[in-house]
C-alpha cells in the first residue's frame, strides 16, 4: 500500500474522497492566515498525490486541533484527524517538519511523559527554551510570573503512573 491517500485514510479513518471543496474548513480555520495552503487545498493535494509539498508543508504542523473544520464539514470529514495522520506519515518518511518548533514541542512533551508519567511544565518549558528557534529571552517574564505564582512546580510529584506510561509508550512504537 504505497498510495498516500490510502495511508491517510487507514490511519485517520476519514471519508476523504467525499470532499467537494466547499471551503468551509478553510473559512473557519483559526490559523489559516499562517498557513501556506489551508486545509481545503491540502485535501486537494492529497487527492492529486502531491506528496512532497504536502508532507513538507508547515500547514500540517500548524493545525491547532480545534475541530472547527470537523464540526462544520458537510461530509463529516474530521480534518484534524487527517492532519494527525499526515504528521505521522511525514515523520515516518523522514520529511523535515515544516514547523520544526511545533514538532520539538510534541517530542519534548512525550519525552517528559516517559519520565514522569505526567506533564512537567518546568522541565518542558526549560528544554523548549534552550532547544527551539524561539529567541531565548521571549516569554522569560511570563515564565517567571508563572513560577512565582507556584504554577510551574520544580519538584515533580510521584504519581505511580510513570512505569505504566513508559511501558505503554514502548509498546505503542
Amino acid at each position: 500500500m504505497n498510495n498516500l491517500l490510502d495511508q491517510v485514510k487507514q490511519i485517520s479513518e476519514q471519508p476523504i474522497e467525499q470532499c467537494y471543496h466547499c471551503h468551509k474548513c478553510t473559512a473557519g480555520c483559526p490559523v489559516v492566515s499562517a498557513m501556506r495552503y489551508g486545509p481545503d487545498r491540502l485535501l486537494r493535494m492529497l487527492a492529486l498525490e502531491q506528496e512532497e509539498p504536502l508532507l513538507s508543508s508547515r500547514d500540517i504542523w500548524l493545525c491547532a486541533g480545534c475541530y472547527s473544520c470537523a464540526a462544520r464539514c458537510p461530509n463529516d470529514i474530521d480534518l484534524a484527524a487527517v492532519m494527525d495522520a499526515l504528521r505521522q506519515i511525514a515523520m515516518a518518511q523522514g520529511y523535515p517538519a515544516g514547523e520544526p518548533d511545533a514538532l520539538l514541542f510534541h517530542r519534548l512533551f512525550l519525552r517528559v511523559l516517559s519520565v514522569f508519567g505526567r506533564s512537567h511544565e518546568a522541565a518542558m518549558l526549560g528544554l523548549f527554551k534552550v532547544l527551539s528557534h524561539v529567541p531565548l529571552m521571549n516569554d522569560v517574564g511570563a515564565g517567571i510570573g508563572l513560577f512565582l505564582r507556584g504554577k510551574v512546580p520544580i519538584i515533580p510529584k510521584r504519581s505511580g503512573a510513570a512505569a505504566d506510561v513508559r511501558q505503554i509508550m514502548q509498546r505503542s512504537k
Binding site: V31, A64, G65, C66, E99, A102, F105, L125, S132, V134
Partner: peptide, 8 residues
Amino acid sequence: GAGLSLSR
C-alpha cells in the same frame, strides 16, 4: 491557539 502558544 491552544498548544501553539510556545512555538508560535
